[in-house]
Design a protein around this nucleic acid. Structure first.
Lengths: 162, 162
DNA sequence: TTGCTCCTCACGTCACGTGAGGTGGC
DNA sequence: TTGCTCCTCACGTCACGTGAGGTGGC
């Protein structure tokens, strides 16, 4: 006789085990509950929080969005796909727009970081030349900005460190 | 008669103009001075702070490193290229290592973000299929995780939003 | 019952935000 | 002198960190 898995009672985790799996800690989870960002699925009669395994995916999304520089109140908004009209069309439209928003943020951020890598590369190139030069950057020559050899501005990342 | 530009007295900016150019604000600059991250080049006798134009490049680097998740004390360390032995070789070695550190951080972060984009893409693909499906995710079906049509786990980013 | 996990305050911290009240400098 | 910019406290805030003291549940 095959037993139907009980889908209406998915596995629940206590806060410690859930935090470990989700890569976070107890204080953060309690704080997220306090601000309404992530509410446990239930509580024991003694007050113990119980989380769904799948809530770890919500946590991951929060971490991703935080890494992109969003504040928790904005993250609440972006992830509140269950608020609003309850039609299937409306619900799915909110999901789609949340995913699109994240993709935009990711693309923009990647472009930014690639630009920063190019600037680092440019600085490396100039640094090679500086190593062959006699002048040592100090306050007397405004830390070699502009470069006494070429008269040009230093790459930003060298100017920052000289 | 040509006049030698006075390199020992580069243009100095008051805090407001400097903040505007560097894309920051007065409070942040005062805080950075307090913790020793960015000290003004000089002060007027009345106490007004004066910054070098080139210090904006230092600020930019601080912002970049903050965006990569570093704390200010770590940023102090990474950017303290003027501390240590004062030989040219030592100084340049510290510059090089600071640039390498940043490049590592940038590459790792870009890889991470690209992975996140792929996950978003994967979620979009599944969402297309879900739109053709009759089942509506709710607490009775554990928000469609696992998918009642395929039996497979949902993409993380759908599970997070369903 | 023991031990480990969890609970709720509640104060501390980092990186600033935001006035209050006063002074500098073209 | 007027107006704008700057000054130094100093308290507030966001997102937690870190105990203190007490209870739950296998």
């Amino acid at each position: 006789m095959s037993v139907q898995p009980n889908l209406s009672e998915p596995k629940l985790l206590k806060i410690g085990e859930f935090a470990r799996r989700a890569g976070t800690n107890l204080r953060t989870l309690r704080y997220y509950e306090e601000i309404g960002l992530l509410t446990p699925a239930s509580r024991s009669k003694g007050g113990f929080r119980f989380y769904r395994e799948s809530d770890a995916n919500r946590l991951t999304m929060v971490q991703t969005l935080q890494g992109l520089g969003l504040h928790l109140d904005r993250i609440c908004e972006v992830m509140s796909t269950r608020n609003g009209d309850t039609t299937k069309a409306g619900f799915f439209a909110r999901i789609r727009s949340a995913l699109e928003e994240q993709d935009r943020l990711l693309r923009d951020r990647i472009t930014e970081l690639q630009g920063q890598r190019e600037r680092i590369d440019y600085a490396f190139g100039k640094l090679q030349e500086c190593e062959k030069c006699d002048v040592i950057p100090d306050s007397g020559n405004n830390f070699c900005d502009p470069c006494p050899a070429t008269g040009q501005e230093l790459p930003q990342d060298l100017s920052a460190l000289f």
